[in-house]
């Protein structure tokens, strides 16, 4: 009887229709190990292609731009975005901004488009821990590359500051940086995806008319923009911490 309760519990319409987990589309066997092509891969591919096409078009438009003519709509938007990202990096990193503006801008646009892709029916790639952890590990590598380049061996002896007793705690705080960065992005986008999935799966049809639109504005657009901004800001703060004079 007990297992009957559980199995009927799992077959409730709620559990059946709420669709927010990663699903695999294709199973590939490589030397007997199953590798899955999941919705994350497809969404990542679409997002990447979109960004590449956008970048190529923007490059063409800017290269052909006539300095005397009035800029068109697309050129204006590209100008605005590039200037905004430049100001964002400049405001935090100051003299070091030139070295990092390309990386921060690309990662910002990638995370932003990934988060917003939930609006277009994709499962946001950033709602997969396998996407956010590498992003945070890039940050981790950059932090320590810059730290070693700037401080040489002092970068490691700093772990024993102010007293040698604090060494384990310093190490934990260094390791916690990529963990908290990735979990922050993953958790925010995943919570939005879960709630949207529950709304789409649970609500009766008449309640799906207006409510999901409001939730999409909050979870996809507002939360997505904030999280992309926060990820880039924190990356800059951590890196700036190591290379500041």
């Amino acid at each position: 009887m007990g297992s009957g309760i559980i199995s009927s519990f799992q077959n409730l319409p709620v559990a059946m229709e709420a669709d927010f987990m990663i699903q695999y589309l294709q199973e590939i066997k490589i030397n007997g190990v199953s590798v899955y092509i999941t919705t994350t891969h497809v969404a990542l591919l679409i997002v990447s292609l979109f960004i590449i096409i956008l970048a190529v078009i923007a490059n063409r438009v800017i290269a052909k731009a006539d300095p005397d003519a009035t800029p068109g709509t697309f050129q204006n938007i590209v100008d605005l975005v590039v200037e905004m990202l430049g100001n964002m990096v400049d405001g935090l990193m100051g003299t070091n901004a030139k070295r990092f503006v390309n990386y921060i801008s690309s990662i910002f646009i990638f995370i932003l488009i990934s988060n917003i892709s939930g609006l277009f029916g994709l499962r946001p790639p950033t709602a997969d821990y396998g996407v956010t952890l590498p992003l945070a590990l890039f940050t981790f590598c950059i932090i320590h590359y810059c730290g070693i380049k700037k401080n040489k061996t002092k970068h490691f002896t700093n772990l024993f500051q102010p007293v040698a007793l604090l060494f384990p705690i310093n190490v934990i705080s260094e390791v916690a940086t990529p963990l908290s960065l990735s979990v922050r992005l993953f958790g925010n986008i995943m919570s939005g995806t879960v709630l949207m999935g529950l709304v789409y799966g649970m609500f009766p049809i008449f309640a799906k008319l207006g409510i999901p639109a409001v939730m999409h504005i909050y979870f996809d657009i507002f939360s997505g923009c904030i999280q992309a901004y926060v990820f880039c800001m924190l990356t800059m703060v951590y890196v700036n911490d190591k290379i500041a004079d």
Binding site: M21, S180, V183, R184, F186, G187, N188, M190, S191, V194, I226, Q227, Y229, V230, M233, L234, V237
Partner: peptide, 26 residues
């Protein structure tokens, strides 16, 4: 911008709880 940064950092501990809940449930 300072407020958003601080709030995002403060939010992390709550998200740890959320991630644990997701892992337990699914």
């Amino acid at each position: 911008s300072t407020m958003l940064l601080g709030q995002a950092v403060a939010e992390t501990t709550g998200l740890y709880g959320f991630v644990v809940a997701i892992i337990l449930m699914f």
